[in-house]
Each structure stands twice: as structure tokens, then as C-alpha cells.
Design a protein around this nucleic acid. Structure first.
Lengths: 341, 341
DNA sequence: AACCTCAAATACAGCGCTGTAAAATGCAGC
DNA sequence: GCTGCATTTTACAGCGCTGTATTTGAGGTT
């Protein structure tokens, strides 16, 4: 039982080979305590030679951690969350965390339960993209449970770390893009009732900066978040005979898809007559014709920042708010823009 | 340090309260060894009273397991896989497994690496939905690593457990549905080069059973798996002036979506003039107009069967092949069918 | 050369659980 | 009431790692 050739090498085996104590090897592996360079090299060589890998279960047991963090999203089968989850998994590997993905269904109770109720596995932290979670809920949680919130359904009153893109700035960038080749009548579509306020702020900022007033008649609230809702709302507007927009700023890709459908089905050409931008860069681009210009949050950065914040969090600390970058991905639905039309 | 009130209760604490040995509590919790009913009750009461939860890290350490299984899919942000992953997570909780989701990108090397290369965390098993994995690859794996394969890119020569729906039967069901209100010219669309053979077999079965011959001219291979591919392929066919189909059997939902677009853009009404069925029930239904009738694999069953198979697998054993049920979800794209047209 | 300081390395207990082997208990049958 | 045997329960040594307290030793000062 003591280190047969094809058995997984242990710390003690490495120590023996390197001629040092177990703890020194541990120190090298963890990098927390300084180790003299010569010793360090010897240890690393031994690790290499034996193909040593730390045993996570033992480490966690000794540290009193589980090594498991939860990543909670409303639904995993919504592509925005699925793609974010994918990045989260990648990044978590860096920390040796395994990620337990949870689906809250957007239910406040489910979101709260994850923070307050005892879980089958003790959690070392939670990253959540909440829909309904209130500031009080955040307050009620076990203060020893590190928490990072994601997305835009979070405000200053939530006392927890937060990671997200600058939605206002992004909304402005998208709208500016539409304006950049002379589009004049830019409509905005956002889901009621919360209207993705920050994104609309950005839209207004851009119009103001271009010296155009905001025609509140052109800011449309859809009934829900689905493509059909946007199709219906925009469709009614178009059918009402009012002067048509020459561009549409949609607060989400779903709405943008619905908008495109409403336009195309009424014979309006996208992007020639009406340009459309969306928001989120959900991985559907191939399914849509024309493909969609959209604001793409840097998901890798979001995941990385969230996990860093989670790791660095300490019980009493002041909440941290982090901004992840975004980019504007230009595709067919605004083609021609910036290329001389 | 010995059981302060608000510390997580341990096995030894439960044992003390119940007046039995640690091991007896362990036996009750694990249910492997028989325990007298009276003792059992006492132990359960103590567990309840103290709110005891087993420490997974310690258990795994003692058992020499990691408690982690891998679930590998080509891409998590494809909705079919995302929704399957969601189910897998749910089911894995039953076994106390945490799931490490891997993305292979459909690369053979990545698929193989998961089976052969040493992972950061030792894996207790792998469930994989392979795209490229060969029977030889399966053979090459560490025989101690339990493996369950999912989906249709697996055949008899892969010596590993397999879970999937009966694609042939499902293809038949979908096609029968189209035929059931008198559609006569049913086209088939499948992605080349593998053509989702089983599904097409089912299509042929259904035509044969209805006394209709298969017009091989109506079996179309698309260039790829994307909606656009189907749109292009079907579009060309339609534009060629050949007599139009009155129904389309698409081997995947993506192709079905492309087919609908090709039809609608040419002024053909779906479902009035052409009915369309898809395959997979990807959660996009709301994005498509009309919503899509499709073959819905029972994802819960797939997940459950896969994990059962994984748990019950033993190194030398004969591979098991399990069939999960499916259902035909009738939506707008075949509306009218079975309702008197 | 003796002394001090501080960085580097060590020894070892213990994290909470399970497997093993040994002990206790219950229950027939006589 | 005792023996023999099957059933139930126990004691305890690890699983592989890290935290703490302690020892070692390198390098600088007098």
C-alpha cells in the first residue's frame, strides 16, 4: 500500500523523492509560504517525476472547505446563461473549485433558499444572477457565505459584491453605432415594466449627444421579454401608420429578433431600410437572418471577476462593484453602417 | 472545538446523542449494512435533532473517491445540451455527485483526453455525448473509469454503456404524424454526410407502412447542421420548380427552423400548405413562428438512466444499451393535423 | 568565535468519514 | 440454563492533506 508504482502519488511520496518534509511540498504546491528556490526546484522536479496531483477531497477536509461553489441562474437552457455558465466552469478550474449549477427558475424563494437553507453539500460561495432577490434577502443570508451577484437586477442597496457590464455605456455605444451613418429615427424597444432602465439611459445619452431629442413616442415597452412580445408591440406601431423608424435599438437580443421579424414580415428591409441592434450576444446569431449586431458582454471577464471577488471576499468587508468590458459585435442587421453605406 | 452549539454536527456527535457507535450511525446513513429497527430509529432521531449532514469531502477521502463525475458535451451553449445538462445536474444530486461540465467542442482529441489524460480532479465517472469518439478511443481508456455514452454518434462497436432514444422509432412517429392527415409528398432533410441515418430509416419505415414509396429525390442532404444550411438546400429545391412538398420531416430542429424560413420567405404557408416537424425539442420554440412540432427526447429519463448506468457499471462488465422514451410535441407547424385539417 | 535574528523547514495532530476485524448480543435448540 | 451460531454493534486505524508550534540553519553583528 505504500506507493506501488501505478498508484496515484501522494504528498509523502513526493517528499521522500525530493528529500524534504511533507509540509514543504505542500508549501510549494500552494505557494502561500516562501520556499527557497533550490528546494522549490527539487520539489517541482519530484512532482513532475511522479506525476503528482493533489487530492482535492483531502485538501478540502483539512481546510474545512467543500471546494464547491454554486452558480445560480434562472434557467440554464437560456443561451445567455448557458454560455456564461460555460465560462464560469472554465474559470473555476483555476481555483480548483467545482461548480454546482443551480436553476432558480427566477423564483425569489429559490434564489433565497440557496443563500439561507442548508445545502446537501456545504458551499464555499455562491455566484448568482438574480431576478427577484431583494436587498433584504441578501442581508438575511449566512454572513459567512461569500456571495457575488451578477447582472442588472441588482442595485446599490444590495449589500453584496456585484459584477456586470456598464449597461448605460453599452446602450449608448449601440445607439451611437446606429446614429453613426446618419440614421435619424431610432426607436427603442425594452421589456416592461422594468424597461432595462440603464440600457435606455444609454440610448437617451446617445441621442442627446448627437443633438437629437428623445421622442418618447418612439420608446416602446413590450409586454414581456419574449421575441413575440416585441414582434407584437412593434408590429402594432408599424401598422398604425406612424412614420417608420430607420433604426431599432432593442434592449435584448430576443426583442431584436422579434423586431426583425415584425419588420421583415411587413416588407421592410433589414438593414437597408431599418437597422437593428440587440443586446447580450446570445449564441443564436446563426439562426437569425439577417444576423444580429449586438452588444456582447465579455463573459470571460465576467466569470473571472466574479470568481476573484468570491475568493477575495471577507465576511465584514465593504461590497465591491466591478465592471466587465463589453464590445459591439457588428453583423448583418446593421451592415453598411461605417462602411459608407 | 468539540461540538459547540452552532457548529455543523458530525458523525460522532450523532453517535453520542443516539448512544451508539460512530460506525452504526454511518451504517444507518449509508443503508448498506442492516441495523436493527429500534437502533435505526434512535439514530435517525438524533440526526434529525442535530441537523446532521454528512461531510462529503471526508466521505470521499475515506472511500478513495472524488465524488465528481464529468458530463461532456460539444458545447454547453447549444440549447439541446444545455437543457440536458440541467437535467443531469438535477439527477446527480440524488447520488451526491457533483458534476463537472466539460466542453469538447466536438473535437476528437478533447473527447479522448477526458478519458485518458489525468484530470485536475480524479473523476468517478464520465458521461459523454460524443461527436467523433471512435470505438478504439473507448477501448484505450482507463478501464477503471466508468463511462456512459449518449446520443446517436455511438454504435454497437463502441464498447461502453449507451443511453439514447430509439431514433428510428422516433423518426417513424414524426413522419407518421405528418402522414396522418393525408400529406402525401413528405420531404426529408438531414445533415450530410452522416445524414442522421437512424432518423431517416424511421422516415422510410413510415412511408413504407403507409404504402408510399420513398422518392429519393425528396431526401435532401444539407451541407451542415445549421439552419442556414437547410434554408439554402430547401430553397434551391423549391426554386428549381419541382412540385412542392406538402410536408417536411427535418432531422433536427435547427434544420426545421431553416426549412420554415425557406418556405415562408417564398410565400408558402406553414402549416396550411406545408407542415414541418423537427427533432430534439430544443427550447427555442418561442422564438420560431410558427412554433415547432418536434420529437422531444425525455431528457429526465436520459439523465436518470445514464447516471444509474454509471453507478452500476463494473470494470469487466458487458456494455449496457438503454432506450429512453420520447414524445411527439405537437405545436403550430403541424397544426390542424389530427384535428380534421 | 560567540551571539542574535529571522527565514526556511519540520513534526505531528487532526479534519470527518469508512473498512476491517473483533466483540457483544440475541435466539434457537436441547 | 447452557451451547452454538448468526446478527448486530463496536473500536480503531487510516484516507491525504494542512495548521500550529517548534526546530534548524543561514547570514549578519559584535
Amino acid at each position: 500500500m505504500t506507493s506501488s508504482p501505478n498508484m496515484q502519488a501522494r504528498l509523502v511520496d513526493v517528499a521522500k523523492v525530493a528529500g524534504v518534509s511533507m509540509k514543504t511540498v505542500s508549501n510549494v504546491v500552494n505557494g502561500s509560504v516562501p520556499v527557497r528556490e533550490a528546494t522549490r526546484k527539487r520539489v517541482l522536479a519530484a512532482i513532475e517525476q511522479l506525476g503528482y496531483r493533489p487530492n482535492v477531497a483531502a485538501r478540502n477536509l483539512a481546510k474545512g472547505r467543500s471546494g464547491v461553489i454554486a452558480f445560480a441562474v434562472p434557467q440554464l437552457d437560456r443561451p445567455y446563461f448557458a454560455s456564461l455558465a460555460a465560462r464560469m466552469l472554465d474559470e473555476a478550474e483555476t481555483y480548483g473549485w467545482t461548480v454546482q449549477i443551480h436553476q432558480t427558475g427566477g423564483q425569489r424563494e429559490a434564489e433565497l433558499a440557496l443563500l439561507t437553507e442548508r445545502q446537501p453539500v456545504r458551499l464555499d460561495g455562491v455566484v448568482m444572477s438574480p431576478l427577484q432577490l431583494t436587498p433584504e434577502d441578501v442581508h438575511r443570508r449566512d454572513p459567512a457565505l461569500p456571495l457575488v451577484l451578477l447582472g442588472e437586477n441588482v442595485d446599490q442597496s444590495h449589500r453584496a459584491d456585484h459584477v456586470g457590464i456598464d449597461n448605460r455605456e453599452a446602450g449608448r455605444a449601440a445607439t451611437e453605432h446606429l446614429l453613426s451613418d446618419g440614421r435619424q429615427r431610432v426607436m427603442a424597444l425594452a421589456p416592461g415594466p422594468n424597461l432595462k432602465v440603464e440600457r435606455l439611459h444609454g440610448y437617451r445619452d446617445a441621442l442627446a449627444a448627437a443633438g437629437l431629442g428623445v421622442d418618447e413616442d418612439m420608446v416602446l415597452a413590450t409586454e414581456g421579454v419574449r421575441g413575440e412580445d416585441a414582434e407584437l408591440t412593434l408590429g402594432r406601431w408599424l401598422d398604425s401608420g406612424r412614420p417608420a423608424p430607420d433604426a431599432v435599438f432593442a434592449a435584448t437580443d430576443w426583442l431584436a429578433m422579434g423586431a426583425i421579424r415584425a419588420l421583415v414580415l411587413r416588407g421592410r428591409k433589414v438593414p437597408q431600410q431599418v437597422a437593428v441592434v440587440g443586446f447580450d450576444d446570445i449564441p443564436y446569431d446563426l439562426a437569425i437572418l439577417p444576423t444580429l449586431t449586438t452588444v456582447a458582454p465579455d463573459r470571460v471577464a465576467i466569470a473571472r471577476l466574479a470568481l476573484q471577488a468570491l475568493r477575495d471576499q471577507e465576511p465584514g468587508g465593504e461590497p465591491v462593484r466591478l465592471r466587465a468590458p463589453f464590445s459591439l459585435v457588428v453583423r448583418e442587421s446593421t451592415a453598411g453602417i461605417r462602411r459608407g453605406r
